[in-house]
Computed example of a mutant assay.
Amino acid sequence: MNITESTVFVPGATSGIGLALALRLHAAGSTVIVGGRRTALLEQIAADHPGIHTVRIDTADTASIASASAEVIAAHPDVNVLVAMAGIMRTEDWHSPAGFLADAEAAVTTNLLGPIRLVAAFVEHLQTRSASTIVTVSSGLAHAPLRVTPTYNATKAAIHMLSESIRLQLADTSVQVLELVPPAVRTDLMPGHAENDAAVPLDAFVDEVMTLLETQPDAHEILVERVKPLRFSEVNGAYPEVVAMLNRTDPHARA
């Protein structure tokens, strides 16, 4: 992925990792389009950061994805990077349906169907570019589960395997498939995350991500140092210890 000369669409980027990454890519020289549900936030981002483009999109809504994607491609025909950033993380109690079903369904819609639908909206266009990238966003919890967020863990595991699979299918095209694998980062993804001392500060995380994108342009995964114990726990035999560590601390301490 070329971080200096791309045209990048980042849906789900009105806050947190998405916005921070969008701003860094813009500062690096890329043209950036930020997508989100909240019009007021989009207007504020455009006012605060001249040169950033915005489009309203609800990644939980099929029609919104289709219309916003068509709008982006029409307005920015050079768009060659899709960052499927939007996601939600909610605690669940699986002792009874009332404790999990609604939140589980919402997580599947946003975290899994959202990226699938976004890729569907862009994949043909991306193949017309000489070099293009689909960036998926999984999590360290795709590889070691947090007890209180079962469906979040499952959707991120699905995103990991989806990324692995479509990378194989698209190997005969100009489309690179790049998986961003965050650890816990200080954002508002869940209550308390932004004040969590155990999480990586947002600026430090994005600093490391940008360095990896610049120095490893052909990578399959973007793995900051703090996520590697989770990512490789099964491979190196540390899985039981890592799962125990995750689940004996504050249940909101890891993402």
Rank of each mutant, 00 (worst) to 15 (best):
S64K: 00
S139V: 08
M245K: 02
Q44M: 07
A199E: 00
G140Y: 01
R248E: 03
V200H: 02
G12I: 09
A106V: 11
T110S: 13
E43R: 01
T62A: 10
A144P: 01
G36D: 02
E241T: 10
D103M: 14
V227H: 13
A104I: 10
A120L: 02
T109K: 08
E225H: 10
D58Y: 06
K228V: 02
H95Q: 13
T155H: 14
G51F: 11
R38E: 04
E214R: 05
P191L: 04
N196E: 13
I52K: 00
T173I: 10
T91N: 13
T133D: 09
G192T: 12
V32K: 00
A219Y: 09
N2Q: 01
T31Y: 00
A157C: 04
G114C: 04
H53K: 08
A98W: 07
N236L: 09
Q216I: 00
L101F: 07
V224I: 00
M161N: 15
P201S: 10
I45F: 12
L82V: 07
E179P: 06
H95K: 14
L42Q: 13
A98H: 13
A154G: 15
L21W: 04
N247M: 03
D58Q: 07
V79E: 00
Q216M: 07
S96M: 12
L246I: 02
F205H: 12
S6G: 15
I52Q: 04
V55A: 15
M85Q: 06
V224C: 03
E5H: 09
V227F: 14
H26Q: 09
D188Q: 07
